[in-house]
Design a protein around this nucleic acid. Sequence first.
DNA 1: ATCAAGATTACCT
DNA 2: GGTAATCTTGATA
Length: 207
Amino acid sequence: MNPMSLKRQKLSIDFYTGELLIVAQQLLGKMFVFNNKNLGRKLSAKIVEVEAYNGNIDEAAHTFNGKTERNKIMFERGGYLYVYFTYGKHFCANIVTGKEEEGTAILLRGMEAIDGIESFSQNRFGKTSVDNKEKKNLLNGPGKICQAFGISKEQYGMDLLSDEIYLLDAPRIPKNKIVQTTRIGIKKSEELPWRFYIEDNSNVSRK
DNA sequence: ATCAAGATTACCT
DNA sequence: GGTAATCTTGATA
């Protein structure tokens, strides 16, 4: 048996309620697991790229202008899943962090497929097999992640402390292997360096 | 009721 | 490197 898998434990509430930028960096390398009930299958992938959003000081955050029907889960305590729909096509998944009313969350931007590659491929490309090039294109973007996992409106507000969807612990990525840059695809607060990814990882959405 | 913008992606040159 | 596609949400009237 793989000795790594024995040690891995589900992340607890204390992890999610920490400080936004710390949690964002600590998310790198962690395993995202979704026991997809519709699919009847467990899907998992390693997080390799994230972006932090903080409505208190960050104009790009969905919570910058206060609570709405869409963003209200971001004002709950850390550990919930915030899913939103954008550009008429794509869902994006975030992990809510911090304490109640903080309005902070972390966007999942890039992952590396671990378990359920056939399902990821079926959801993304309509076929169960992938070549090496397609494999790198399964989860290297926020919309792609949701399509591959089958995450949509139905998963809005799910609790990561549940048994259906959660994170597994993994060794901390060393600071010198974490790249910090500005975020992608925003037109406000562009200067904030709140994107983090694992250096040299091929599933990062963009350099 | 109307309208513009959007934490993207795929496809084109 | 540039851009069309596509529709929900939130703001404004």
